[in-house]
């Protein structure tokens, strides 16, 4: 693993959306600072609508209208860091096949090789020539994840990528994600409002307040990865986190469905 240089350093002093016609502007983020070490999975946990997506868009460079600073450590060869983004909805282009969707983000001479590899890794080698409207929800997410890994990201942003899927599919996708991450290590910023999901995936939880969002607590997940398959262990951890962070009750913890 790389030495502990922060792969990402974000200091957002303020992000505000102008109010519509004289209404008071909405402050989405205020004093949010976050750093992520190379190769770690950081889960951003916070109530719905607290500005998590806003934060990811800023880190991704999609939103430049904010006060503050985002620094990504460049690649060893001096190139700027590459950022892969797995959006909440898969955002596949429906008029391009599965293969063509991945090829779009790659330089043409490498597309074939990289896409073939990744489609195999996510178990969709057979579906390469199908169009997204013909895919199930779970399959679409796989393609979206494959596309993000295709660019060999230094930072992978994931914005609640597993919402509105059934429980079994989510389990499969989580273990697929971890498998890919082990084979292709990268820094991951994973946004979720599901504390259980965060505990299963992350090295570290960053708990966010409601809007305007700032970091409430930074909680390392000490449980070894090979012991996280146990529902009981995760549940124990979840209760511990909730005990220490009462403000999460009613937001992240208590609303997540009992399984």
């Amino acid at each position: 693993m790389a030495p502990v240089t922060p792969a990402l350093l974000a200091e957002i002093r303020e992000k505000r959306y102008p109010g519509a016609r004289g209404a008071t502007p909405h402050v989405a983020l205020a004093g949010l600072s976050l750093r992520a070490a190379a190769g770690e999975i950081v889960a951003l946990v916070g109530p719905s609508g607290c500005g998590k997506t806003t934060f990811l868009n800023i880190v991704a460079g999609l939103d430049r209208d904010f006060a503050g600073e985002v620094r990504l450590t460049p690649r060893p060869d001096g190139q700027p860091a590459r950022v892969g983004y797995v959006f909440q909805e898969p955002r596949l282009l429906p008029w391009r096949t599965v293969y063509e969707n991945i090829a779009l983000v790659l330089p043409p001479h490498r597309a074939e090789l990289v896409a073939r590899d990744l489609l195999k890794a996510v178990g969709l080698a057979e579906a390469r020539d199908r169009y997204p409207p013909q895919l199930s929800g779970g399959m679409s997410r796989r393609v979206s994840i494959a596309r993000a890994f295709a660019i060999e990201p230094d930072l992978l942003l994931m914005d609640e990528p597993f919402v509105s899927l059934d429980h079994d599919t989510v389990e499969q996708l989580r273990s697929l994600l971890l498998k890919l991450w082990h084979a292709r290590p990268t820094t991951v910023l994973f946004v979720t409002h599901d504390l259980r999901e965060a505990l299963v995936l992350a090295d570290r939880l960053v708990l966010l307040s409601g809007a305007p969002a700032h970091v409430v607590a930074d909680v390392p997940v000490s449980l070894a990865r090979n012991r996280r398959h146990s529902g009981a262990e995760i549940e124990r951890l979840r209760e511990e986190v909730l005990r220490h962070h009462r403000e999460l009750i009613g937001a992240a913890g208590a609303t997540s469905p009992v399984e």
């Binding site: 868009n57 460079g61 999609l62 950022v83 983004y85 909805e89 779009l104 983000v105 660019i151």
Partner: peptide, 10 residues
């Protein structure tokens, strides 16, 4: 959404 996707993936 598609424009954002294209932009974020350069």
């Amino acid at each position: 959404n598609y424009a954002e996707m294209a932009e974020s993936f350069h």
